[in-house]
Every structure is written in C-alpha cells, then in structure tokens.
C-alpha cells in the first residue's frame, strides 16, 4: 500500500534519514521503533509531506506522493496524528474535529464520520464544547486521533502515541487503535519509543537506528529477539 524507496531526508544541513526503504501493508498495524533522535519521526513527517526527501520516492497505492504538498497528501487517504498532539488549543473539541474534515472528500461525509468518532471516543462527546487545551493528556490524544480520523484515512500515521501519558491510558488508547484497525480496516503506522507497547500492538515491526533501518520482521518475533531485548529492554540475550 505504502512504498518507501531509498529516501534520504535532511533537517537543514543535517541528514536524519539514510537510504530508508519500507513497505507498509494495507490492512495491518506496522510499527517503526527506535530511540530518541533515531530518525523515526522524520520518516513519518516525510510520508505526511512536512519534509521532502532529497533522494528516493514514496508511493501510496501506486500514486507518487513525495512530490505533493502536505495538504494534497491528506486527500489521498493518509492522515497523521502528530507528535505532542498539536491540537488547535483555542478551539473547542467539535471545532478541532471539524478541522480534521476540511478536505472536500471528508466534508461530504462529515456528520457520519463525526458520529462514528464520538462513538469511538465517548469522552469527546462529553467535552464537545470545551476548549481543547482544557482536556487531560489522554483526552487530548484521543481528540488528536479522532481529528485525524475525520479525514477518512485509509492509513493512519501515529507519532509517539505514548508520549507523556500514563501507562493505563496508553493501554486504553492502543486498544482503541487496534479496534479501529480491525473493524474499519484502517491501516496504522505507529512510530514509538515505547518498544513493548508498540510491538505488542503491531503485526509488523521495523527498527531504525541513526537514520537507517537495521531490522525488520514480525512484531512478536522482534519482541523476543536478542537485538530488541538488549538494545531497548535492557535485558541480556537469555
């Protein structure tokens, strides 16, 4: 579904991603794990179009998207839940959701999608008329996900789901993501520092270090592998 071929990405003069190729299957949950500054968020921002690769290409269902501006990429069916939520703080919960459905395609089915999103996250219905910055961290993350779902994506990019959230909240939200994936068939590409959570949730995993992909495989196998256990879980290879 999403095909990344040999991309190099820079932040200014600094190269953050080196010759990364990834293939993300349509229906499942894929994760890209790595430590802080490994380039994983850069990969995600490049898919969403906020950054442009200087080399390589990205195609989505055969359509080349790395040359499109970010607001056009949304229309092809890719939505991103940005790191740190990035809600429109001064707007109400409803307005935030409405902003998610700003594209022409999404606007036509806005009410339907809204009803579904409020069904998935009932707390947002209670908070509907509150300003986004009055929500708790977990509620804000739910709103950020809900807002991205409003664009009716086929692939949802999630950047650092667990950042700054209590473990029990992370568990709840990842459970909801799993449900969205299974019942709606929306593909999920999750970028995470919380390696255990990410690999438990995902079907497929990729490991990124210093801007290069250093390992790929079934998530369950990666979780059990020495490579992951030593580097990310602080365990010996026993």
């Amino acid at each position: 579904m999403l095909e990344i071929t040999g991309i190099d990405v820079f932040h200014g003069d600094l190269q953050a991603v080196w010759d990364v190729s990834l293939s993300i299957e349509g229906k499942g949950i894929t994760t890209l794990i790595g430590s802080n500054g490994s380039g994983k968020s850069t990969v995600l921002s490049t898919i969403a179009g906020l950054l442009k690769p200087v080399k390589g290409s990205i195609t989505f269902d055969g359509v080349r998207i790395d040359t499109m501006p970010a607001h056009k990429i949304v229309e092809t069916g890719i939505a991103m839940v940005p790191e740190g939520r990035r809600l429109f703080r001064e707007m109400t919960v409803l307005d935030n959701l409405e902003m998610g459905a700003i594209t022409k395609r999404a606007r036509q089915k806005k009410n339907e999608t809204m009803a579904w999103v409020l069904d998935v996250f009932p707390i947002l219905k209670e908070r509907a008329r509150q300003r986004a910055d009055t929500l708790s961290g977990g509620e804000q993350q739910m709103l950020a996900i809900g807002r991205s779902l409003m664009s009716q994506p086929r692939l949802l990019l999630v950047d650092e789901l667990s950042l700054g959230l209590a473990p029990v909240v992370v568990q709840k939200i990842s459970h909801i993501l799993d449900e969205i994936n299974k019942t709606r068939g929306i593909g999920i590409f999750l970028v995470e520092q919380n390696v255990v959570m990410a690999l438990e949730l995902a079907d497929t995993g990729h490991i990124i270090e210093n801007g290069c992909i250093v390992g790929s495989g079934k998530a369950s196998e990666l979780l059990a592998s020495d490579q992951v256990r030593q580097a990310y879980l602080g365990m010996d290879g026993e």
């Binding site: 970010a70 607001h71 949304v74 990035r86 429109f88 703080r89 700003i102």
Partner: peptide, 13 residues
C-alpha cells in the same frame, strides 16, 4: 494556531 498541523489536516496554507 499551528501552521504545520493545519497543513496536515488538509488546509491549503
């Protein structure tokens, strides 16, 4: 409020 995020929503900034 958030230039980049508006772009991610599909706003032609």
């Amino acid at each position: 409020q958030d230039h980049d995020c508006a772009m991610l929503m599909g706003v032609n900034v």
